[in-house]
Computed example of a mutant assay.
Amino acid sequence: MTAVDPISASSGGSSIYATDNTLGTPKQTMDADLFMKLLVTQLQNQDPSSPMDTNQMISQTTQLSMMQSLATLNSTNTESFALAMRTNAAALIGQQVSYLDKNGDTQTGKATSVSFSGSVPTVTVGGIDVSLDSISALTLAN
């Protein structure tokens, strides 16, 4: 018979307490990896005389699947929005646009180029770089 150390609650050298020092900063958002770790921990530590309800397990697995689907949908929406901004910015080239300058005055000029280097496309109007979300009007050029 192996004696159990009451301090570390271990026998044979393995502790039931987490000793992993690689955790670092705790996650601020729940992801599939964290969800699965919680589910596995819950299963490992359940009372054998009263196991986890299968309906509850199915519910949690369904929640994991829904969370993964929502994460994928969010990523797709973000990519779609970025593509729409780029398409709309490119469509402004050669058009007469208006925007508010730093002083709050309305400026008008022809859009000559677009840069996609930042998170929001930048349109060059009369030699000045203007953020796409700062453009307030569009006049079709003849």
Score class of each variant (00 low, 15 high):
residue 3 A to M: 11
residue 4 V to S: 08
residue 7 I to N: 10
residue 8 S to C: 02
residue 11 S to V: 07
residue 11 S to Q: 09
residue 12 G to W: 09
residue 14 S to K: 15
residue 15 S to N: 12
residue 17 Y to S: 14
residue 18 A to R: 15
residue 20 D to W: 12
residue 25 T to N: 09
residue 27 K to Q: 15
residue 27 K to N: 09
residue 27 K to Y: 09
residue 28 Q to E: 06
residue 28 Q to H: 07
residue 30 M to F: 04
residue 30 M to H: 02
residue 31 D to E: 04
residue 31 D to N: 15
residue 35 F to A: 15
residue 39 L to V: 12
residue 40 V to C: 03
residue 44 Q to K: 14
residue 46 Q to A: 08
residue 46 Q to W: 10
residue 51 P to I: 10
residue 51 P to Y: 10
residue 51 P to L: 10
residue 51 P to R: 06
residue 54 T to G: 01
residue 54 T to V: 13
residue 58 I to V: 10
residue 59 S to I: 02
residue 64 L to C: 12
residue 67 M to H: 05
residue 67 M to W: 02
residue 71 A to C: 00
residue 74 N to P: 00
residue 75 S to I: 08
residue 76 T to E: 11
residue 77 N to L: 15
residue 79 E to T: 14
residue 80 S to R: 12
residue 83 L to R: 07
residue 90 A to M: 01
residue 91 A to P: 01
residue 94 G to D: 04
residue 94 G to L: 00
residue 95 Q to R: 04
residue 99 Y to V: 01
residue 102 K to E: 15
residue 106 T to R: 07
residue 107 Q to C: 10
residue 108 T to K: 09
residue 108 T to Q: 04
residue 114 V to E: 00
residue 114 V to I: 09
residue 115 S to A: 06
residue 115 S to Q: 12
residue 116 F to N: 02
residue 116 F to T: 03
residue 118 G to Y: 02
residue 121 P to L: 01
residue 122 T to V: 11
residue 122 T to Q: 11
residue 124 T to Y: 05
residue 125 V to P: 03
residue 126 G to C: 03
residue 127 G to T: 04
residue 127 G to A: 04
residue 127 G to W: 03
residue 129 D to S: 15
residue 130 V to L: 03
residue 131 S to E: 07
residue 131 S to T: 06
residue 131 S to G: 01
residue 136 S to A: 08
residue 136 S to G: 13
residue 136 S to C: 08
residue 137 A to T: 15
residue 139 T to F: 01
residue 140 L to K: 09
residue 141 A to D: 02
